[in-house]
Simulated scan of single mutants.
Amino acid sequence: MPEQPPPSAPSPFPPLQRPLEYWLSPDLCRLRPEDAPSRLREIATARGAYMGAWAAGIGVGAEMIVLGVCLGCG
């Protein structure tokens, strides 16, 4: 079992600079256009592409197995 740091250890993440209400504020949405690039959108797009590639690979693999079974029996 990995050793846990003591409860008094400092957090590796910096403290939040702004409260949650700031990030949820409708005024903040008006500052940037909706299609403006952001790191969060880039991460989400990359993650979706990665998961899509895995799903496609699994689908093609399953199809090849079924095709092999069908052609092998005939």
Rank of each mutant, 00 (worst) to 15 (best):
P2R: 03
E3Q: 04
E3M: 03
Q4C: 04
P7R: 01
A9K: 04
A9D: 05
P10K: 00
S11E: 00
S11P: 07
F13L: 04
F13E: 00
P14T: 00
P14Y: 02
L16E: 04
L16S: 06
L16F: 06
L16G: 05
R18Q: 06
P19S: 07
P19M: 03
P19G: 08
L20F: 03
L20A: 07
L20C: 01
E21G: 06
E21K: 02
E21L: 03
Y22F: 10
Y22R: 02
Y22V: 03
L24V: 01
L24I: 00
L24P: 00
P26K: 00
D27C: 06
D27I: 00
D27N: 11
L28R: 11
C29K: 11
C29W: 06
C29I: 03
R30M: 08
R30V: 11
L31S: 15
R32Y: 15
R32C: 15
R32P: 01
P33D: 08
E34A: 14
D35H: 06
A36E: 09
A36M: 09
A36R: 12
A36V: 05
P37D: 03
P37S: 05
P37F: 04
S38G: 12
R39F: 13
R39L: 12
R39C: 08
R41F: 02
E42T: 13
I43N: 10
A44R: 15
A44P: 01
A46T: 12
R47C: 05
A49C: 10
A49G: 13
Y50E: 07
Y50N: 08
Y50I: 02
M51S: 14
M51F: 13
G52I: 02
G52H: 09
A53T: 14
A53E: 08
A53C: 13
W54Q: 08
W54Y: 09
A55Y: 05
A55W: 04
A56Q: 08
A56E: 07
G57Y: 08
G57F: 11
I58W: 08
I58A: 14
I58L: 11
V60L: 13
G61Q: 00
G61N: 03
G61Y: 04
A62I: 12
E63S: 15
I65H: 09
I65P: 00
L67T: 15
L67M: 11
L67Q: 12
V69T: 11
V69A: 13
V69M: 10
C70Y: 15
L71T: 14
L71M: 11
L71I: 10
G72L: 09
C73Y: 13
C73Q: 12
G74A: 09
